[in-house]
Structures are given as structure tokens and as C-alpha cells.
Design a protein around this nucleic acid. Structure first.
Length: 406
DNA sequence: CGTCCACAGGAATGACGGGCGG
DNA sequence: CCGCCCGTCATTCCTGTGGACG
């Protein structure tokens, strides 16, 4: 028992046989080098360079799918600018990085900008207009250039509209000495179309698109981070390649790839292994996929859950839609619910197929008709477990189990 | 070789709820 | 604030079909 606890303590203190710096694989880590993004770093640094001369840079709009390095590149450039400013002792520009997924109200965004710029603002109590005024007055009391980075800006606009965005792009009209410029980042390509044309044109003075990484590029990135994160010689050959190819198949998402690699390391650690093997990576992938699938299952509409339940009860396989439908009707009856029609259930099966939770294929049995064979794509025990979080389904599953034991 | 099973899956239609412009 | 319109979920009715069986 003591051994187990001391093991946990040891791990919690970071004394790992596997990792020397686990942080290097976390998604918000900003590494010193960003392979295959040099060109974008250069471009963005050039675009922001006017701040060094106390001039306003163009507003920039950046798109790209998740895990293509948008945030990392911008953060990296900011970091270098700030380091430079500290080194030579200048104080003519400020950066504010706001993640709109976390700061999702006008007040919180302005608050974050305020605290980054150095204005003292109460947590609450001011009107948004007052906040805006104080911020503007403070900024204009000096002669500085403020660059505001709005990451995942689509979240903000979807929630509270583009009002704030509009005002921020227009704030320069009210400033005498200082300047404000905006960098917007989003992974929703269609998002821009929903913007007010005025906001769109001023925000998109310069537009930059980040393409996804391919498998080779992902492997480079992983190798670089792995050297920081893992102890020497711990990583088996092929692990990096495996993680890279898995992530490349899914939009070339570097975040996925890093998650996978980190998780593989954690599994190796949990197993008390001395090395991270491809087998660990495979397990990591499986577990991550199962988790994702279970998340989907959890948020399914009720009758889709019932269809899934019916399939899981039948051992995860149904030889025809008809037989599955019969089970489904029994389930509905047991739960005192009105069943949907077979036509509708057939559509639900198709939807579940699309989501990758099950696979269905049409087969013809000649004289005995044409139907669909349906098979569960994930472990039925896992499905039952997740579905049992609904109390009524849970009770029903328990009832079935007891019945079978006797 | 035609029949006919057991559905697939398209089309029309209705009930409902939520967002949006006037 | 209200009515309108649109998207989603569901039902009803329907036509289409691969191939074993007789």
C-alpha cells in the first residue's frame, strides 16, 4: 500500500522515468522553434514590426484549421517582440492576448485588455461603456501602440455579436497620440462571411491562411518537442511516426499529434514501463478515440441512445433492421415510452453510422428480403456504461443483468 | 426466369421551437 | 413585442431492388 502511495507522490512531484518536461507536450506551450512555420513567423513579425517605430501595424486576420500553429506563431512573435523591448529598454508598444473562448463577454475581453495594458480596473461594477472610456483614456495618456490579439474570435461574435469588434476597429478615430491594431484568429472559415461588412473590411486588411501540416511536418514537430519532453532514449523508434501519421489522417492537427504523444508517455508511465513503445501509442490512440466516441454518445438524442442500447443488448450486432427494431420496441415498452416508427429508426441508424459509432451495410438475402446488418463500432460494455448515466436506462440495464444471472 | 421478401430510402407533410426583422 | 419564417424531428406513403426460391 505504501509503495503505491509513494509511487503516486513521486509521480506528482514530477520524478518521472519517462518525462523530463511534460509541459513541452501541452497544447499551450510555446516552443523556441516552430518547424515549418518559419515563413509565417517572418510574415507576421514583418507585419507587426511597425510597432517598433511606434506606428500602427495593419489589422490582421488569420484563419486555419485547429492545430495548424496559428496561436503558437502569434504567441511566439509576441514573445520575441516583448523580449526585445525588455532588452533594449523601450516601452512604446503593448500586446494583449485574449482567448475569446475563455473571455466570452464584452466586459471580460475589455478587462483582459485593460490588465494586459496596465490599467487598474475593478472586476465588476463598471458599465462596458465606462470600461471602454477608461481604457481609451489610459492608452491615449501615453504614446504607445497597442496590439490586441483576439484568439478564437468567432466565439465572441457568436455569443455577443460584432459590436465590440466594430468599436475596437474604430477606436483609432478617437485616439490622438496612441494607436490600436487588431489581430483576429479563427478556425471557422465561414465565420468571416457573418461579419458586418465594415468590420470585415477593416479587420481583414491583411489575411493569412494557415494550411494543415502533412505527416512529415508533423513528425518534425513531434521530434522537436519529444526531445524536450522525454528523457533521453526513452522513446522507441516509430512512436513519433505513428503519432504523426494518425494525426495527418485527421486534418493534420498538430495538437492532436502532441496529445497523442503525451498520452502515450503517460500510459507508459502508468504501466511502469521504461520506454514508450508504439504499442503504448496505439493504446493511447484507442483510449482517446473511445473517449471521443463516448462523448458523442453522451450527447446523443434520447431515441438514438435507445437504438444504441437495443443494439448493445443484442450483443452489439443485429442481423437486420427488423430484429433491431423489435428489440427497440421492447426497450421503449419497458421504459414506458412511445416508440418511433421503423422508418425513423432506420434514419437514426444511418446517423449513428455517420458518427462512426456503428457500421451498417445493406445485404440482400434473396428470397428472405433485403435489409441492413448493423454492428457496433465500439465496445458494447463501454456503451452500456455511458448510457447507464441516464437513471432510467441505468435501472433497465441493471434489471436485464439480474435477469440473466438468475 | 419470374416472383416476392423485407426492407432501403425518397417525397410530402405536419408539429414544434427558436431566431429575426419590422 | 409579435408574427413570420426557417430548420429539425417525426410520420405517412410510396417506389425501388438484389437475389434465393420455386
Amino acid at each position: 500500500m505504501e509503495d503505491v502511495v509513494s509511487e503516486v507522490i513521486k509521480r506528482a512531484l514530477g520524478e518521472s522515468r519517462i518525462f523530463k518536461n511534460r509541459e513541452a507536450l501541452s497544447s499551450d506551450y510555446v516552443p523556441d522553434r516552430l518547424p515549418h512555420r518559419e515563413e509565417y513567423i517572418k510574415k507576421i513579425a514583418e507585419l507587426l514590426s511597425p510597432v517598433l517605430r511606434v506606428e500602427k501595424p495593419s489589422n490582421i486576420f488569420i484563419y486555419g484549421l485547429t492545430g495548424t500553429g496559428k496561436t503558437a506563431v502569434v504567441k511566439y512573435v509576441i514573445k520575441r517582440f516583448v523580449e526585445h523591448a525588455e532588452k533594449v529598454g523601450i516601452d512604446v508598444f503593448k500586446f494583449s492576448y485574449v482567448n475569446c473562448r475563455n473571455e466570452d463577454t464584452n466586459y471580460r475581453v475589455l478587462f483582459k485588455i485593460g490588465s494586459d495594458v496596465g490599467v487598474r480596473i475593478p472586476f465588476t461594477g463598471l458599465s462596458v461603456a465606462e470600461l471602454h472610456n477608461r481604457l481609451r483614456e489610459y492608452v491615449d495618456s501615453k504614446r504607445i501602440v497597442v496590439t490586441i490579439v483576439l484568439d478564437e474570435v468567432d466565439f465572441l461574435v457568436k455569443k455577443v455579436g460584432d459590436d465590440l469588434l466594430y468599436r475596437l476597429t474604430r477606436v483609432n478615430d478617437e485616439l490622438r497620440r496612441s494607436k490600436v491594431s487588431i489581430v483576429g484568429i479563427t478556425n471557422d472559415v465561414k465565420f468571416v462571411e457573418t461579419l458586418d461588412p465594415r468590420v470585415k473590411s477593416s479587420l481583414g486588411e491583411v489575411e493569412i491562411v494557415f494550411p494543415p501540416y502533412d505527416a512529415l511536418q508533423l513528425a518534425d514537430i513531434l521530434r522537436e518537442r519529444a526531445a524536450l519532453a522525454f528523457r533521453d532514449g526513452v522513446l522507441e523508434d516509430g512512436v513519433v511516426g505513428y503519432c504523426a501519421s494518425v494525426a495527418a489522417r485527421e486534418h493534420g492537427d498538430a495538437r492532436r499529434a502532441l496529445d497523442l504523444l503525451r498520452f502515450a508517455g503517460e500510459i507508459a508511465e502508468r504501466d511502469n514501463a521504461s520506454r514508450v513503445t508504439v504499442e503504448h501509442a496505439r493504446k493511447a490512440r484507442e483510449e482517446l478515440e473511445l473517449n471521443a466516441a463516448m462523448e458523442v454518445v453522451r450527447t446523443l438524442p434520447y431515441h438514438s441512445k435507445l437504438v444504441l442500447l437495443s443494439l448493445a443488448i443484442g450483443g452489439g450486432f443485429a442481423e437486420s433492421t427488423g430484429s433491431l427494431y423489435l428489440v427497440y420496441r421492447r426497450v421503449c415498452e419497458a421504459l414506458g415510452l412511445e416508440p418511433l416508427t421503423q422508418r425513423r429508426v432506420s434514419d437514426l441508424v444511418s446517423e449513428l453510422d455517420m458518427l462512426g459509432i456503428l457500421t451498417s451495410k445493406v445485404v440482400s438475402r434473396g428470397r428472405y428480403g433485403k435489409t441492413r446488418e448493423v454492428a457496433l463500432g465500439v465496445d458494447s460494455a463501454a456503451i452500456l456504461k455511458v448510457l447507464s448515466s441516464d437513471t432510467r436506462i441505468g435501472e433497465y440495464v441493471k434489471l436485464l443483468k439480474n435477469g440473466r444471472n438468475r
